[in-house]
Computed example of a mutant assay.
Amino acid sequence: MIRVMIVDDQDIIRAGLAAIVGAPEDLEVVAQAADGFEALQTLATTAVDVLLVDLRMPGIDGVETVRRVRLLRPAAELGILVVTTFDEDENVLRALRAGADGFFSKSASPAEIADGVRRVAAGGRALSDHAVGVVVDHVADDRGVVIDRAVADLVATLTPREREIVEAIVSGLDGATIAARLHLSPFTVKTHANRAMAKVGATDRGQLVSLAVRAGILPS
């Protein structure tokens, strides 16, 4: 069972997220907090696997909450997933730099949020397509980025079709768009993407993008 704490200053939003997260049998909402201070106090006495936190809150905001939580609990002990209305590019980068493991807009589907909780609980990353695009653009603009030869060797084992799909993912395209452009079914696109992840050692889409960029695959 994955134990989740929800941190949001709006009662109705907390209730909605609790209903979403608490619906699957493998997830359980064990605590809720209305701000970062309450979250920190609750974490001191409650066993939590994933912190699901908003960005705009009174007192200390979500980014500062993430930063303070990380000083107490490393990623190996606690996953942090930001779910917010304010998904501007800078907020994505600020949250990830502070130590968040994932970033979703509140417009994400219940299935996406539940899956994101599972992924960060397992030590992975959970990023929306928009967040992935922000990270890729940021890395691509960094003139200090150099090719990681070990990762490039792994990427070289991809089939032409797998690489084509990875390149499309790095460019920020979702599965449905890739399928339409390549005249493939969404299932086929997902199968090739999963095979590519297995070959390069990625556990999720966000890590696949990160590794691909390190190998020199940049957004077109």
Rank of each mutant, 00 (worst) to 15 (best):
T191S: 04
V170H: 03
L184A: 07
E167Q: 15
V120M: 04
L173K: 12
L154M: 14
I178Y: 01
T177P: 04
D87C: 01
G116A: 05
A114V: 13
P24N: 05
T84V: 03
V30C: 00
S105D: 12
A39M: 06
V213S: 09
D148G: 02
F103K: 14
P24F: 00
A15Q: 14
D115L: 07
D115T: 13
L208T: 11
A39Q: 07
T157L: 01
D153R: 11
A196I: 07
V135A: 01
D54F: 03
R56M: 09
S128T: 14
D26I: 08
A76H: 15
A212L: 05
T42W: 00
I147F: 01
A121T: 14
S171C: 05
G172L: 05
N194I: 02
S107M: 13
A150C: 04
R205D: 03
G172S: 09
A131H: 13
A108W: 10
K106L: 15
V134A: 04
D174N: 15
G172C: 05
G79S: 04
L78Y: 04
A215V: 12
I20M: 03
T42N: 13
D54S: 05
A150T: 14
A34Y: 06
G102P: 15
A98F: 04
L51G: 03
A140T: 13
R3G: 00
L158A: 01
V69E: 02
D61M: 08
I60N: 13
G102Q: 13
V4T: 06
G59W: 08
D9H: 06
A168N: 08
L158R: 12
R214I: 01
A44C: 09
A180C: 03
V50D: 04
T177S: 03
E90L: 03
A114Q: 11
D49F: 00
V63H: 08
I13M: 07
M5T: 09
V66Y: 06
L43Q: 15
G16W: 07
E162V: 06
I169S: 04
V145R: 15
R3A: 00
A15G: 07
M57C: 07
S109G: 11
T46W: 00
P74G: 00
G79P: 09
V200M: 01
Q41I: 00
R68P: 13
Q32N: 07
L218Y: 13
T177E: 11
G206W: 04
L127E: 06
G172K: 14
T85P: 08
D49V: 01
L27T: 08
R205T: 08
A114F: 06
L218R: 10
T188K: 15
L52G: 07
A202E: 15
I178N: 02
A76Y: 10
V146S: 09
L51D: 05
V50K: 05
V30Q: 00
E162H: 09
I165Y: 02
S105K: 09
G144T: 15
E38S: 05
A39W: 02
G124D: 08
L96I: 13
I6H: 04
